[in-house]
Nucleic acid binder design. Structure first.
Lengths: 134, 134
DNA sequence: CCGCATCCCTATAGATACTG
DNA sequence: CAGTATCTATAGGGATGCGG
């Protein structure tokens, strides 16, 4: 993965970290499920390849967006979670959803969730952040 | 460039359009300058290659994020501008900046602009949108 | 000059098979 | 289950060409 910083621009620097077709989908999964195993990510609709998943998880961990933990039950499993830095991507993720809502057709369950978000964006962010931190 | 939609997820669909290392930098340039020529984009700090720039401009135009116009003075020049759909990426761009502000060191001019945005985000979006539409 | 298109070459993304 | 290894396709950098 890319490591070099292309410029001092905050947009550019951010894209250097998660500006590819997969990283934010991993973040999305972790926001939906709070914690995921490696195979949970593989099950997502977009069907990420295993090597890409491994490299993105490494990259996101190296950039302190996610952390790895041992699974409490199974020694074989690993749990991935968002860090505070990762959770702080929530407002960004919401804006992506709002933009997509305007220009694409969303699945009904997402549409409903988003309608709830729209009612009080700040409140939703607070609630969700607290839930993800627990 | 990628055209196929990987899933119905709004995040995924959005990333299919602008989820690469360059597209949002083009959008950024157009938000800063309102209109840019081909060579303006080439002058940006990140030094995009000409073939990449051409393919991204095509892609963004095909997805109705930007439009091409004849330059009023020079017949040889072309002006690129954001469409409403492109301008609607502004809240998203702001959130990227806010996230970057929390975890990176911003250049002082950007920092100042962002402090102004923070004072009243909604007002800034309205003002900027109006300016970009003019 | 300006806006690309083309070519060449390298680096990275990605699909699939496989392993501890 | 959580990743590697291997192989191929595509993205991307850099130079150059070329019509308007």
């Amino acid at each position: 993965m890319d490591l070099k910083k292309r410029s001092e621009c905050p947009i550019s620097s951010s894209l250097d970290v998660w500006g590819d077709k997969w990283s934010l989908l991993i973040v999305r999964d972790l926001m939906m499920c709070k914690q995921c195993t490696y195979s949970d990510f593989l099950k997502s609709d977009e069907k990420i390849a295993t090597n890409i998943l491994a490299s993105r998880l490494q990259m996101l961990e190296a950039n302190a967006i996610i952390t790895k933990e041992d699974h409490p039950q199974s020694k074989a499993k690993v749990l991935y979670k968002l860090t505070q830095k990762g959770i702080d991507l929530l407002p960004l993720m919401i804006e992506i959803n709002l933009w997509a809502d305007k220009y694409f057709t969303l699945p009904t369950d997402r549409k409903q969730l988003l309608d709830h978000v729209k009612e009080d964006k700040e409140a939703f962010i607070k609630e969700k952040t607290a839930e993800l931190l627990k």
